[in-house]
Design a binder for these strands. Sequence first.
DNA 1: GCGCTTTTGACAATCATTACCAATATCGCG
DNA 2: CGCGATATTGGTAATGATTGTCAAAAGCGC
Lengths: 135, 135
Amino acid sequence: MTDETTIVRNTRQRAAVRDLLADCEGFHSAQDLHAILRERGERVGLTTVYRTLQGLADAGEIDVMRPPGGEHLYRRCSEGHHHHLVCRDCGRTVEVEGPAVETWAQRVAGKHGFVDVSHTMEIFGTCPECAAARS
Amino acid sequence: MTDETTIVRNTRQRAAVRDLLADCEGFHSAQDLHAILRERGERVGLTTVYRTLQGLADAGEIDVMRPPGGEHLYRRCSEGHHHHLVCRDCGRTVEVEGPAVETWAQRVAGKHGFVDVSHTMEIFGTCPECAAARS
DNA sequence: GCGCTTTTGACAATCATTACCAATATCGCG
DNA sequence: CGCGATATTGGTAATGATTGTCAAAAGCGC
């Protein structure tokens, strides 16, 4: 336990979680993923799902989003880092990219001497359809 | 029910929460604020603090930040909208402004037809001191 | 195969937030 | 000014996601 032990052993459970994330494109909660694994017949404990997701998140292999609802959502980290535009009403999500934002965040953090920088950004609004339905 | 029932009555409790937020510059959790009110002798229920904060947040009078820790943090909304650079280790927070980000968010959301746009952004990193201490 | 270590996982614990609902305070109005 | 309808309060219970615990089981180096 002296060195930074991340994930040192390959286990059936971790593989299951990884595979599942590879299959599911969008965001899913830990509880969600656990339920899906159960349905598939994979026997993985809820605790393990949480731990694995945390590990993967720490390792930067997956993204975490924390919507106002309270549940954390995890997603396989696609190469292109991008952000989310979420409709307040229907929950529809659009993925958007913002290279300018990335560099801005890096620059600002660097200016204050911060290192190992990451960031989260979410844009909320009302999508055209909901706005129309709202009358 | 056609009209948005926001806050229709002025009560001692709501005033207390507002005043408190006016005093405290930084971010505070609901539980925090409640404890402070208690110490001050103001008798305000925890439930009411939560409700009031939610109302104020909805009305756009205060900002909400949701750090990884899980506790929601509320802050009196200063006129200049700005974001936060948070140290992962010591929790030190630096306020940063990014006009470019604001306009970018608006533009991107608008491009997708979204209206009534708001956004949240947080930058995480390791501050110089913690980075040094980390060796 | 052996043994040391990591990992698992069922369950309990934690903890912020929300629901409930009777008691209370507010405010318009006569 | 007082009354009454109604918004609001607040103690407590419920909710529900996440984390802690720790004995049992599984990996991996040899």
